[in-house]
Simulated assay, not measured.
Amino acid sequence: MTHASPHTSSPHTPSPHATEHDSDDHAELLDLDAEVLAEHLADITGWLPVGADPRQIVDLGCGTGAGTFALLERFPRAQVTAVDTSAGHLARLLRKAEAAGLADRVHAVQADLDAGWPDLGRPELIWASASMHHMADPGRTLRRVRDTLAPGGLFAVVELAGFPRFLPEGAPEDRPGLEERCHAANDRHHAEHVPHRGADWGSELTAAGFTVEAERTVSVDIGPPHTDAVGRYALGSLRRMRGSVAQVLAAEDLAALDRLLDTEGPDSILRRDDLAVRTERMVWAARRS
């Protein structure tokens, strides 16, 4: 499967049976992730050790285009091939490209990379953000990436440390530590359902025939104060997490979580002025050996 995700849910990609509403919520969350973390994404693309600016780029698991648009801005002469399993995400990406006057620089390919490998040309740069851990056989995907890259081409892998944290320590006041308990339950869920999350991608890249040229960890700590987008990002993220943890949370914790998610209630997370965004992203830049 090849979807980008701001952070993994179960996984953070709609299942084949997801409702249209679920898909819309997921797309909105991807867009919010891109908006809230735009500065950090630009920092990552600016750091890439590309040498000469690439002209052909592939974004594997592009989602609604966070990486695609960051790469288009970083490399103004490049064309980007955006690959995803979701027709809805690709349509949304293309609408945004059209609105930004970038339609002539974006080519969309709908494909499930676990099922087959499309013709992606010979790109000088391949970007995979929050998508490698969704692959059924990451080693096979890495070898296909290696074979697809142009000689001397670079592969950038960006992976997440899981869901961001939003609440301050001691919140919510009626159930302190709720967010950490939700994270612990979510981590147990993903250990079972998303086994490649948290893999040692440096070793995986080396085993697949790459030389890792650079790696780094990007720490994110935004606010407070926060923007309206951060509040909506927190709301969407915790809603997404609820689907993975509802069955295992204590009843008191689930009730407290639902009060945070009730946008009409007095305890709504949208009413809080103390939200932050705290997370980490790990980045590997690897060259064909």
Rank of each mutant, 00 (worst) to 15 (best):
H7A: 03
P11A: 06
P11H: 06
T13Q: 11
S15I: 06
S15H: 06
H17I: 14
A27C: 00
E28N: 05
D31S: 10
D33Y: 13
A34W: 04
V36P: 07
A38Q: 15
L41C: 02
A42D: 15
D43A: 07
I44P: 04
G46E: 09
G46S: 10
D53G: 12
R55F: 06
D59H: 02
G61Q: 06
G61P: 03
C62M: 04
C62G: 04
G63P: 12
G63Q: 08
G63M: 05
T64Y: 01
A66H: 05
A66K: 02
L72Q: 03
P76V: 12
V80G: 00
T81V: 10
T81W: 01
A82H: 09
V83H: 05
T85G: 00
A87I: 01
G88P: 06
H89Y: 15
H89W: 11
R92A: 11
A97D: 02
E98M: 05
D104L: 01
V106L: 03
A108E: 10
D114H: 12
A115D: 13
A115H: 08
G116F: 03
G116S: 10
W117H: 08
D119Q: 11
D119K: 09
D119T: 13
L120W: 09
W127C: 08
W127E: 12
A128Y: 11
A128H: 12
S129P: 00
M132F: 14
R140Q: 14
D147W: 02
D147I: 14
P151V: 13
A156M: 04
V157K: 02
V157G: 03
V158E: 02
E159K: 05
E159Q: 11
E159F: 06
L160G: 09
L160E: 12
P168L: 10
E169M: 05
G170Y: 09
G170V: 12
G170H: 08
P172W: 01
R175A: 14
L178I: 04
E179A: 10
E180K: 01
E180W: 03
H183F: 05
D187S: 12
H193G: 02
V194S: 00
P195Y: 10
A199C: 07
D200F: 00
S203F: 00
V212Q: 06
E215T: 15
E215S: 15
S219H: 14
V220Y: 02
V220I: 15
D221T: 13
G223K: 08
G223C: 07
P225T: 14
P225A: 09
H226N: 10
D228Q: 11
D228C: 06
A229I: 11
V230H: 07
G231E: 13
G231A: 09
Y233W: 12
A234D: 09
A234E: 10
R239G: 13
R239F: 02
R240D: 14
M241V: 15
R242T: 13
A246N: 06
A246K: 13
A246Q: 14
A250V: 03
A250N: 03
E252Y: 01
L254W: 13
A255F: 02
A256S: 14
R259S: 03
R259P: 01
D262G: 05
D262M: 06
T263S: 00
P266Y: 01
D267F: 02
D267P: 00
I269C: 00
R272C: 03
R272I: 10
L275K: 04
V277T: 11
T279F: 00
V283S: 00
R287M: 01
R287C: 01
S289P: 14
